[in-house]
Write a protein that binds this DNA or RNA. Sequence first.
DNA 1: ACACATTCGAGAGCACTGCTCTTGACGGCC
DNA 2: GGCCGTCAAGAGCAGTGCTCTCGAATGTGT
Lengths: 240, 240
Amino acid sequence: MCATLTGMPAAAIRARARAEMINEIKTIARRHLAAEGANLSLRAVARDMGMVSSAIYRYFPSRDDLLTALIIDGYHALGDATETADTEVTDRADLRGRWLAACHAIRRWALSNPAEYALLFGSPVPGYAAPQETTEAAARTPAVLIGILADGRATGALADPDPEELPGPVRSDLAAVRDRLFPGLPEALLARGATAWIHCFGAVSFEVFGQLNGVIEAREEYFDHQTRQMADLIGLPDAG
Amino acid sequence: MCATLTGMPAAAIRARARAEMINEIKTIARRHLAAEGANLSLRAVARDMGMVSSAIYRYFPSRDDLLTALIIDGYHALGDATETADTEVTDRADLRGRWLAACHAIRRWALSNPAEYALLFGSPVPGYAAPQETTEAAARTPAVLIGILADGRATGALADPDPEELPGPVRSDLAAVRDRLFPGLPEALLARGATAWIHCFGAVSFEVFGQLNGVIEAREEYFDHQTRQMADLIGLPDAG
DNA sequence: ACACATTCGAGAGCACTGCTCTTGACGGCC
DNA sequence: GGCCGTCAAGAGCAGTGCTCTCGAATGTGT
């Protein structure tokens, strides 16, 4: 292995070791997160790595920075899961199928990674303000959902809702989002998509945060049913 | 004041002092919760009371028990707010008006008590399992919402949705809830109400947990708009 | 009236946390 | 060989939840 490294400048190999170290810290931190929930202990992570706690601070200046890194990774993981679920629907014109696939992917990811999901969408940490990078990564998941609607409008499958159904201030807020991310999309269609996305988030949070305990047992069917109701609200047509 | 107490048996006056102590602890704990978020410190509460931390354990066997008490209080406060908002609508036949009033009351309470709201509906504490008492208190708020639908069905204002729109397992889960709380209500109507309630929870959580930051500024109008969309989904008629 | 039991607050102490600062060991670069 | 940046280690600070023991009240039974 030295053979492969001799050619590299010293700075590069150091940077490489550093990156691997950061990755290992994040991996172990994720494991702790999954096992014990949000109160992540730097010392415990350090113990698992056979290091002393102060050494972690060489790589993350504070616990919050570690959490930020995990949050960004989480948003990307969720975004990836949602994107692939959408792209795996071969019939691109099947808007409802794509919508359902994306929503189910969100739910599945959340159930597989409840602690990370709680980190992303649960109660915010008191003193913690999400830096700009997180909001960019966070936008990926709703972007997939709204993208389905944009596709539908582009092909004429989705009619433009009456813009008058939106209150003025809401319309201009949404217009700003539209201009940034989905040029040409009518605000009212964006609003319907946002409502459905917020419902999806609510349904997943309800389940992951335990509010469904003792009430609904057929969780997946229930989620599917609700998602279909919301697809109706958006006006997503059945396939074919 | 001794005059008012001399007649009481000693046990009663002790119990009274104890109850006042418990109330003061909860009040101060709530203040800390509002100021610094979920990581409530028993020692800080004790300091504010001029007591030593171990004395708190005379009244609450653990921090989790204090949290449980705060959670139950919170559910009741939210339930009260929602109930009064509904009952204050004088035209009891105005189902949509009652629904909107209740949802707005939920949002207002959450915005006024974000830390308590996070305690109720945010990420669950890792080792913490909500005892039975909390779920009873928790049921009050959705009960108000579903009660509006039950009223509408009783007066014939709300038609029964097609029961076939529900998957079998979901239907039997909901039937169990119905038999416990809303006898006679069709499962499909209950399902629509639950979907709208879950959306309401999602919209409020989205706002309280900061996911709307930098995206929507006209928060109240936006919430109102979404709630009206959901009222349409339920089939709530306009007033009159 | 005296002894007993209960209740309560205080204090010390344990094991743990995030974080800071200092120290000493490496390993390339001039 | 000397210099400098990088790194891990250790001690230490202030804080946490929680347990245990102690002394001081206070009301009760004899």
